[in-house]
Design a protein around this nucleic acid. Sequence first.
DNA 1: AACAAACATACAATCGTTTGTTTAAGAAGC
DNA 2: GCTTCTTAAACAAACGATTGTATGTTTGTT
Lengths: 341, 341
Amino acid sequence: MKNGKVTMSDVAKRAGVDISTVSRVLNSSFEKHKYSDKTVAKVRKAVDKLGYHPSLVARSLRTGKTMLLGMVMSDIGNPFFSEMAFHLDGIMGEYGYRLIVCNTNEDPERQEEHIVGMLAHGVDGLIVSPSGKRGLDRIENSDVPLVVIDRPLSNGFSFVGLDNVLAGKMVAQKLKAHNYRRIGVVMPDSKEDLTLQERLDGLKTGLKDEGCILSWKVCIPPTAVAGEESHRAIVNKLKKELDYPDAIVGITNVCTLNIISSLEELDLVWGESLGVVGIDDFTAASIVRPSITVVGQPIKRIAEESFALLLKQIKEDKKKLKKETVLVEPVWHCRKSLPVR
Amino acid sequence: MKNGKVTMSDVAKRAGVDISTVSRVLNSSFEKHKYSDKTVAKVRKAVDKLGYHPSLVARSLRTGKTMLLGMVMSDIGNPFFSEMAFHLDGIMGEYGYRLIVCNTNEDPERQEEHIVGMLAHGVDGLIVSPSGKRGLDRIENSDVPLVVIDRPLSNGFSFVGLDNVLAGKMVAQKLKAHNYRRIGVVMPDSKEDLTLQERLDGLKTGLKDEGCILSWKVCIPPTAVAGEESHRAIVNKLKKELDYPDAIVGITNVCTLNIISSLEELDLVWGESLGVVGIDDFTAASIVRPSITVVGQPIKRIAEESFALLLKQIKEDKKKLKKETVLVEPVWHCRKSLPVR
DNA sequence: AACAAACATACAATCGTTTGTTTAAGAAGC
DNA sequence: GCTTCTTAAACAAACGATTGTATGTTTGTT
């Protein structure tokens, strides 16, 4: 009561009842314990008068549930993740959960630290977009539910993410439909990230099915941001080619970004002399002129599915539930860079 | 021990010492209590063997500190806020604090709900970018430290944000320095937001001091996104003017965005036929061609100052500390839209 | 050898809830 | 009128840590 904090026993005292009575009235747990209307009223009044709010810390200690869900993300600055956080916050709020976030900045060590920290804080579940495997085992050993997003891990954690093979295929189909035949592709040079391979595989088989030709492929450094070196590689490739392809595909948003800055340098206007299409959306895509057509991730759905998986694990309690993988369908953002020819 | 959770008393049991011994060894609180090396070693070993991590929930209950800091933001999708979260997460992490975020989506009701929720969760401090005043009084009544960011509130909360008058002045000075004389300005039509008035005032006095002329002013609807109506207003204004101004100033990023889409429609190339400069940075500014010169907010500094203020309040405990206002200096992002003429 | 001072550790209360188990009345049955 | 149910409310034990105080051992001093 002093120090600004009103506790349950203050309420009990003022209402002239026992603290357990207050608790049960407030939680409406009347199954085994009925209370007279008079008592209930007394309690309610005392609560209002004192402006009582239960301490979630104490409740958590007693119940073992904190109603906190943790999100460990690899790059909080990336719009994909902030949008993800936006949707998650909205959805889980309806269920009374609150979101704790942290940012690993792609650093596996920080990832582990953060995971340990979140577990110590007693989160009821974790959503992780992993930068490597470090720390994930900690979650597995605890029995805190976990859903991995964005990048699948070879270990069998529950996962929600894009159907990358399908994304590649969709690009191939769209290219064909819009009458592009000779296709160039730019992709990051990373063996580890199977996501990329899947996209490429989908694209390749798709192109073959559609009777298109993969004219060339350029690999660029697997950095998170567009860079001079990548840029150079693409320009060189284009200069060396005798004739340009009909269209260029960016396997990731960074690739696509590099493509457009290269074309700018060569004074080629995408959407006119040649088409450009990317996998994964990015802010600039709708801003540059002409705007860039991409297949993107349905972020809201990913958020919904992740939360649903998490909630199921929380409710069914044990992680005896077998791990589930949810692949979501990519969505087209049709803009100006891939007109019908 | 069962149920996967290892508690302090498990450690004590295994080490054959009292639980208080474990606590003090782990917290290195040796001022009043010295322990033999042997005991310390025993404890450490037991901790390692069992993989013990203290329950922050229990600790919070006992100590009254959760080591959680809450950030209530008006729009998590806005890069300003996600960058803010990024820096905050980084800084406070070094001090052992963890970040809880929530998103009000500019809805005062959700703001109040979230504030109540965060207080119930026992956060040690709050950083709020307010959408109205609702709920702020709750914080004031509790004795949880509060720092308001982004938009100052007439109530005297501690505040960190941009020096808007200075921002206006800086724009005026730059315009003069680059030889622009006749200036048009676009600003949102909102009486409430004093931020905007300050910017305009700074600009006006600055222009006067520099001997420039405020040629015209257009007010657009105060929406959060660029829109058709705003766009139209600007186009009309420009068409009606007999001769164009030397440069146009966007008072907010949304204004600037509207300016460039209007100019696009009129087939005017900014940075050539006329200059464009904005207050507040935005993603597109560096992406459109020519890129847009703006004075922006030093987000990292805002994060640092907010945390510093919060920490000071937390340490000096009482909110008896008088409220402080920190105005940070805007920073130039000089790009291509305002070349020297 | 006696006595205090310093050291090493244990005991026990507490933080604010939830929740299983009593207790104290009234009401009902005979 | 006495036992037996209900019903309404109180009692008390957790949850897992921190921390003030008490206790039992050494060590040092004379």
